[in-house]
Amino acid sequence: MNGASLTTWDKVRQPLQRRLSGEAAALIYRMGLVVLIALVLAVLSDSFSTSSNLLNVLRQASLIFLLAAGLTLVIISGGFDLSIAVNLTLSACLAAGVMKAGGPPLLGAGVALLCGTCVGLLNGLAVTALRMPPFLATYGTLWILQGLAFHYMGGNEIFGFPPEFRALGTGFFLGIPIPVYLMVAVLAICTVLTQGVNYGRELYAIGANPVAARLSGIPVRRRQLSVYVLSGLSAGIASVVYLARVNAADSGIGEPLLLPAIAAVLIGGTSLFGGVGSVFRTIIGALILALVINGMNLLNVHSTWQPLVVGVVLLAAVLLDLLGGHRRERIG
């Protein structure tokens, strides 16, 4: 009797324990990787462990994270959003245009957030109401948005923004860059959304098995719509921070951020196949990428190497995802 109940308990407990420890281990490995890269860089370069450089790494990581946070939610729910970087470009260009025309910084930032959210809404409607495959729909919007950004900017650059606006990207509060506070705030909100309330559990369920999710009464299409909107909003926030930091907008500013953002999500351990991952993991992914990029700068590697390295990191992340055993049939 005692033995029987023990085996029943074991049947429930053991797989759970194994799964938990597996996820914890994956997280610890990745944190270890962050420490390892940091240590290597500290040995290789004297200027790495200065506080200004470390804060710089954090700032770079926060930018990648802000762009990738929404994407993480989309990928957890089994979708994909290729348009985030171009969404950032268009949002930044519009915000720059507004401020150039004399609009206050608050209005500029508002326009960027609104533009990002609207693009996300359009993506979401294309995927849910019009039933397009997510990847194709967002690939189409990518080029439409890029065309619009080219058209709006007409090959010109808009630069020089009010100091209050620039503070969003370059400012400090209590010695820590303001984007880092934004990163922590977004992380907190996303963590509550995904881990604290039913909404998050529903996203994981949709990502793991959309049919089962629908049959168990989850409003799948509405949830999917919401993640694309959040992804657009996330791109809008990132566009404000990025624009404030570089202090100039042109029609190509977002493009170099696409691969790092996707790589950050995947290297963090969120599975491309849906249903596995977390926004916190994306922070670790963003830190790893920021460290790699920072290290290349410190070691005087020419910036032309950056796409190559990020591409390799992305492929490595996909392979890692495969080794994680999350592979499932999926139409790309």
Binding site: F80, L82, F135, Y139, L259, I262, L266, L272, F273, H302, T304, W305, Q306, P307, L308, V309, V310, G311, V312, L314, L315, V318, L319, L322, R327, R330, G332
Partner: peptide, 21 residues
């Protein structure tokens, strides 16, 4: 068995990077 669009996005980065280098 990896999703083609992410794989080719990665090789996109590698090819573009190699051309720049």
């Amino acid at each position: 068995g990896l999703p083609p669009f992410v794989v080719t996005l990665g090789t996109f980065g590698v090819a573009q990077g190699a051309a720049l280098v």
